[in-house]
Amino acid sequence: METGTWKVKTGLAQMLKGGVIMDVVTPEHARIAQEAGACAVMALERVPADIRAAGGVARMADPTVIENIKKAVSIPVMAKCRIGHFVEAQALEALGIDYIDESEVLTPADEAHHIWKHDFKVPFVCGCRNLGEALRRLGEGAAMIRTKGEAGTGNVVEAVRHMRAVTDAIRKLVNMPEEELMAEAKEMSAPFELVQEIHKTGKLPVVNFAAGGVATPADAALMMQLGADGVFVGSGIFKSAKPEVMAKAIVKATTHYQDAAIIAEVSKNLGDAMPGLDIKQIPTEELLASRGW
């Protein structure tokens, strides 16, 4: 019997596909998420919209918060550590977290290096804005990828930009003659072996979710139609007027993402979605997606 294998790490992400991972800050939130059909929860002290509003340094959540959420539900529980903060990651592993998100939503601890994730038995998910960034994270041992979007904005535009960037780059690699792959790997600063693999298979070797700005059932279905394997919803649920209703509607829309009649039906009477932010109004240095490299 062997634990912590690559198959087991990537396999859990495969089991999450087609599902919605919801940010929660209390056991009560976690129960609402599970009841609505979330495939996992992300245990946090504050949702991204509140982190953005609070400013200052955002760190790993208090273990008490994480443990109380773990006790409240039977679905997988994820938690975030700061980029490059491998000791926060060690602590989360010791807490028995099911997946660690090395996340740009928290303040980076290292501006040059991400965590060497191969050393851990617990799997990691990491954010990306393009294929090169995704492949660098895979090289470091991430077992799941999510496009970053712009967390805490309720604005899906960045999520769309990043998902399209990834799928466009995959299409480009597939159609490229073999002799051009090395220069392309250099250009995108990505491990050559992974560039070769994508040229052959036409897809990422791990699951890729969409994150950062999904606020409505239609947003979730949009990301699924653009090729996401599932969605993270951060502030979108518990910053909306009716979290239970919104949570259920987003879960249904993610499963039935190709069925316009169902998406129309579940979009009815949701109350106000979370208030959104125009990305152009956010000062460049406050954009979370540009954290990490």
Binding site: T3, K7, V8, L12, P76, D98, P123
Partner: peptide, 8 residues
Amino acid sequence: RQKDSFEA
């Protein structure tokens, strides 16, 4: 939990 997931 996930840390106990295994192959056999």
